[in-house]
Design a protein around this nucleic acid. Structure first.
Lengths: 202, 202
DNA sequence: GTCTATAGACGGATAGAC
DNA sequence: GTCTATCCGTCTATAGAC
């Protein structure tokens, strides 16, 4: 659109995306309904389709918004930095994302579990290139004896799975270790710090 | 039912559950449709509802069947066994389950991500008791200096997340590290063996 | 037991008044 | 921009013939 949005337009736009995140992250694309999104957003269904051309458009908007935020911390790993510090910072950052943006994490998880129908292409190009780049850095660090020798790709997988677990499987975490959020994350950080300190030490 | 099932009944029963597992594990409960299950099972939709009273009944049957298989390896951890061996065996068993039963893993993941509406009660009782029991064993092992000191619950979480990741996020794993299944799991085992050897060593 | 046909509710999306 | 009303397709589940 050539013209700038009004304040109300922007407010509704954001309210719709927020409600859609709530619903899509719990139900996946097909399980979610516009009715539910409309209820959560407190905006009528036709009005939602005034702001977005279709249910699919809302979902895609959320996913593309998300991917950038999700990959930024990985991009930030600096080949010139101290290896252990760089990886621990990334780990910490990913855990903070799980704590502060659990819905985004679950939205992503839903999409991947369902075979990544809308993200597959991006994963195979943008994500793969980024991963290849960082894997090279890890390998250099390993060969220089800065961190222990291990499969670099699975090192990344381990960071992803261990941190995202607390957002995606929150229902299980809470069922097993009681409600209240913050303590879990404090304990989780203690555990992960110990784990990766031992793992990375050459 | 008082009478025994015929061979055809049992065959259809199994075919329906298998098709339902395929569809539910990809789409979650609400995203799945009886039409799709009927197509995969090659059984007409009304006939499916002859064997199961409702869509919900199929899903519930799958979940309860699954939970037993899923928890058995955890139950098998023996307080009298060698601590490191017991935990490494459990780890290996969970990784094998991810490799051999990825659909079951994704079905479970979908249910938990969606807030575990049908499993919450079981998780808070049966799973919690089982976890509490094993946590006690871990704690005894730690205090006896058999394995390193760490948060025992998060040790369990780490085993779950690291192994299930390969089934649940398979689309991402393949996008990043190329297709073909077996090599990933060989590499994964090499990585996890290294990781937990370092982590558990007192 | 398995089918065709269909009921009845709900899904996404559109028309048109205001 | 936002609403009511509604189209049309699909959903789960049932009725009833065979």
């Amino acid at each position: 659109m050539p013209t700038r949005q009004t304040r109300i337009q922007r407010k509704n736009h954001i309210a719709i995306l927020d409600a859609a995140l709530e619903v899509f992250s719990l139900q996946g694309f097909r399980g979610a309904t516009l009715d539910e999104i409309a209820n959560v957003a407190q905006i009528s269904k036709p009005n939602i389709l005034y702001y977005f051309t279709s249910k699919d458009a809302i979902y895609t908007a959320l996913l593309t918004d998300l991917l950038a935020t999700w990959l930024d911390p990985l991009r930030a790993i600096d080949p010139e930095g101290d290896p252990i510090t760089e990886i621990m910072t990334y780990l910490r950052c990913k855990l903070d994302l799980s704590r502060d943006f659990p819905r985004e994490s679950r939205l992503f998880a839903n999409e991947i579990i369902q075979g990544a129908p809308r993200l597959k292409a991006v994963l195979e190009t943008e994500l793969k290139e980024l991963v290849d780049d960082k894997v090279k850095i890890f390998t250099i660090w390993m060969n220089a004896g800065k961190i222990a020798q291990m499969h670099p790709v699975h090192l990344l997988f381990s960071i992803w799975s261990l941190t995202q677990h607390y957002a995606d499987f929150d229902a299980q975490v809470q069922a097993v270790s009681g409600p209240s959020n913050s303590p879990h994350y404090a304990d989780a950080w203690g555990f992960l710090e110990l784990l990766f300190t031992k793992l990375l030490r050459p």
